[in-house]
Amino acid sequence: MTTPSPHWQMAVDLERCIGCHACSVACKVENDIELGVFRTRVLYHDHGAFPETRRSFLPTLCMQCADAPCMTACPSGAISRQEDGIVRIAPDTCDKWESCIKTCPYGALHIDPVQKIADKCDFCSHRLEQSMAPACVEACPADVLIFGDINDDQSPVSRFYQRHGSELKGLRVERGTRPQVCYRGVGTVVPQAAVDKLPDGRAHDPVDYEIDQWASR
């Protein structure tokens, strides 16, 4: 089966991440996101006893799941995965049931306090229409977020897959969501314990940024 071009996809190279938050602030400014709610975040995780302590960073966003549980759970049918690989919420159909939030294993959705509807990352679809990369990808100083059309074998994401495909894996794949954002370095650069701290069935809690939350417990 061939998928129509373009098919947008992202990979995250955790080894390169410097934890700078450029991606998450870029997202907030671009999409005019209120304080306290998040489409994208960079979570910090410290592990190891002094002086062998290490720090790792985990950029998170909507995984644009191939079997998106939010889509199945939405009673209004407001969420759909479209031909370009992006899972989108139809703003005028969303009826604020919040079942999408409860079913997402990645904390990717929240209720937008202004629009009063569910909201999440859509790879900055309005920018893609203007041939611009998503805001987070464009801002990243360390080439952590690799994005493009997976059907174009010369796109950055295709080339990354060609080089590192065997090292890539999705987060919480055991949940059967078939996440389409894949990570390089889970279990090595970023311990599984950091992934385990991702919100599950709830939106991101802003206090996760407080340093008290970083250490592995």
Partner: peptide, 22 residues
């Protein structure tokens, strides 16, 4: 919106930091 100016040789791309984005 702000992004880096690749014509600045120190930048070479559209990158910024979080403060630049802000």
């Amino acid at each position: 919106k702000i992004r880096g100016n690749p014509q600045d040789p120190n930048m070479g791309s559209h990158m910024t930091c979080a403060k630049g984005q802000s």
